[in-house]
Computed example of a mutant assay.
Amino acid sequence: MPRVLVTGAGGPAGVVVIRSLLKRPELTVFAADMDGWAAGLYLVPAEQRRLVPPGRAEEFVPTLARLVEDDAIDVVVSTVDVELIALSERRDELAPAVLAAPSADTLDVSLDKLLLAERCADTGRAPRTVLAGPAAQAVDWEFPVFAKPRQGAGSRGIRLVPDRAALDALPVDEGLIVQDFLPGEEYSVDVVADAAGQVVAAVPRTRARVDSGVAIAGRTVHDPELEETASAIAKAIGLVGVANVQLRRGRDGRAMLLEVNPRFPGALPLTIAAGVDIPSLVVDLFLGRELPASVPFREVAFVRFLEDVIVEIDEVLVSDHAGHQEEL
Rank of each mutant, 00 (worst) to 15 (best):
Q179P: 04
D112P: 11
V295N: 09
A101K: 04
A31G: 11
L99A: 12
A232C: 07
G253T: 05
P62E: 13
V77S: 03
G14Q: 02
E312T: 15
A101N: 08
L84D: 01
P162A: 13
A255N: 00
D140T: 15
A236L: 08
S155D: 07
A255L: 05
G154W: 06
E89G: 13
D70I: 04
V17T: 01
G213D: 07
A57F: 09
D33R: 09
M256V: 03
V303T: 15
E259L: 06
T271L: 09
Q198W: 02
F30G: 01
K23Q: 15
F302K: 10
A322W: 13
L51V: 10
Q151Y: 10
L268T: 00
V318R: 14
L51Y: 08
A38H: 07
R56Q: 12
P25F: 07
D180L: 01
L94N: 00
H324P: 02
L27K: 04
D140M: 06
P2D: 06
R251A: 15
D122A: 15
L67Q: 07
A255F: 02
I233H: 00
E83M: 07
P102D: 13
S231R: 12
Q198G: 07
L64E: 00
R119D: 00
V303C: 13
V61E: 04
L291D: 01
F297K: 00
N244A: 13
R19T: 08
G213A: 06
M256P: 00
V283N: 01
Y187M: 05
G250V: 00
V77M: 08
L115A: 10
D112E: 12
L291Y: 09
P102T: 10
A165N: 06
V303G: 14
P54H: 13
K23H: 12
I216C: 08
T7P: 04
G213H: 05
G250C: 01
A196S: 14
V311E: 15
A31I: 07
A57G: 12
G266D: 00
E83R: 05
P45G: 09
P53Y: 08
E290W: 09
P127Q: 06
V6M: 08
A57D: 15
E299H: 14
T206Q: 13
G175R: 02
R209A: 13
D33G: 11
A234T: 04
T129G: 03
R56I: 13
I278D: 04
D35G: 02
A147S: 15
P96M: 11
